[in-house]
Write a protein that binds this DNA or RNA. Structure first.
Lengths: 197, 197
DNA sequence: AAAATACTTGAGCAATCGCTCAAGAATGTA
DNA sequence: TACATTCTTGAGCGATTGCTCAAGTATTTT
């Protein structure tokens, strides 16, 4: 073989993800990436091909982590519905220390991506996958009897996702923490009622 | 006096707004604006001072129109609550012919604006104003007896706005129109129940 | 008609954009 | 040690960014 790479691909992706997540795609320049990744342009392009390719890789990473966390929460909860309610309530934290932004990176990127663009399809595909994941959990709940058979799980899943979108946008306004908590609890409770109907 | 301006300031602002609305702030270049406004850089800067100043002017325009439309809808509806429900249901139209994007320009701009930036405060101020407008309508409903006194109007207003945010993001995914309609109706119905409680 | 006053024009500025590539450095194998 | 292979470096490419300003043009006032 030959010389081994001196950078940590995983760490570089994580750093790039945090940068894109906070600043957005357009506002993140290669100079920014060079500085934060501590890599020269040549290395970045050798490793990730292009700015957009790197961006897509970070979107993959973000979506994978988001899905994994949600699946873990579902697995650790008594029922999928309670997991989703817990998740909604967790969005009340205005300034989370574990993530660079309260906004959803996928939503942020979706709104930034041009219409009828391949990148947009790439992002919506990820969002579709999350929706499917939620619906699958609800289907599972029906099979186990914790959710009424009459419930349209796909429809409820879209509703939950819409709440997540809305709450994460609200979190960007950084208003009163109490109000944010009330709002999250209202929507979490609402999901409980929607599932019962 | 002297030479009169050959451009229509109102029309120019409208065109610029539509451009920023669809493409976003960063992705809209001055070349784009020059082409669509049919104005040379010098004229643009003489008229609007800077790209960001022009952007803010278009945000003002957008917010003013949004508020006016909402107020008109409230005035034309039997009760404010029904107006809000009608509005939520109207978001079901995937490709509206009267607007360049289904997304909310304020939300789009909020997510694009850097954190702890003056521009962000500018945008959140507009969103706060809309929230206040909704709350005021609900207060009015309480005075007129069409909304229970027990209802926390500020809290409900934030809830409605969260639904609007979520629905407008969902509309960006351009999925099935039937599903979108179901979703909008679900949330509109829910607001009715939330107000009754 | 002349002067004053605005608005329009567009070449082009400095800075930055995403990106390339030849040269050098470090590791593996022989 | 010599060679092959891979990674790192960074100067700098052409294009584009937001923007300026001196010159030109149109309109009103005197």
């Amino acid at each position: 073989m030959a010389r081994t790479a001196s950078y940590d691909r995983n760490a570089a992706l994580e750093t790039a993800m945090n940068l894109f997540w906070t600043k957005g795609y357009h506002a993140t320049s290669l100079k920014d990436l060079e500085a934060r990744l501590q890599m020269k342009p040549g290395s970045i392009y050798a490793a990730f091909k292009s700015k957009e390719a790197l961006f897509r890789a970070t979107l993959d990473r973000y979506a994978a982590r988001m899905s994994a966390e949600l699946e873990a929460l579902i697995a650790a909860s008594p029922t999928p519905l309670e997991a989703l309610q817990t998740h909604l309530r967790s969005l009340a934290v205005i300034a989370p220390c574990d993530r660079p932004s309260t906004a959803c990176m996928l939503v942020k990127s979706l709104l930034e991506a041009p219409q009828e663009d391949e990148l947009r399809d790439f992002i919506t595909a990820h969002l579709d996958r999350v929706e499917t994941l939620i619906a699958a959990a609800l289907n599972d709940a029906q099979r186990k009897g914790t959710l009424p058979e009459t419930c349209d799980t796909g429809r409820l899943a879209r509703r939950v996702q819409t709440y997540i979108f809305g709450l994460k946008v609200q979190a960007q306004r950084e208003t009163d923490p109490d109000r944010m908590r009330d709002l999250c609890h209202d929507l979490a409770d609402e999901i409980g009622r929607a599932a019962a109907a």
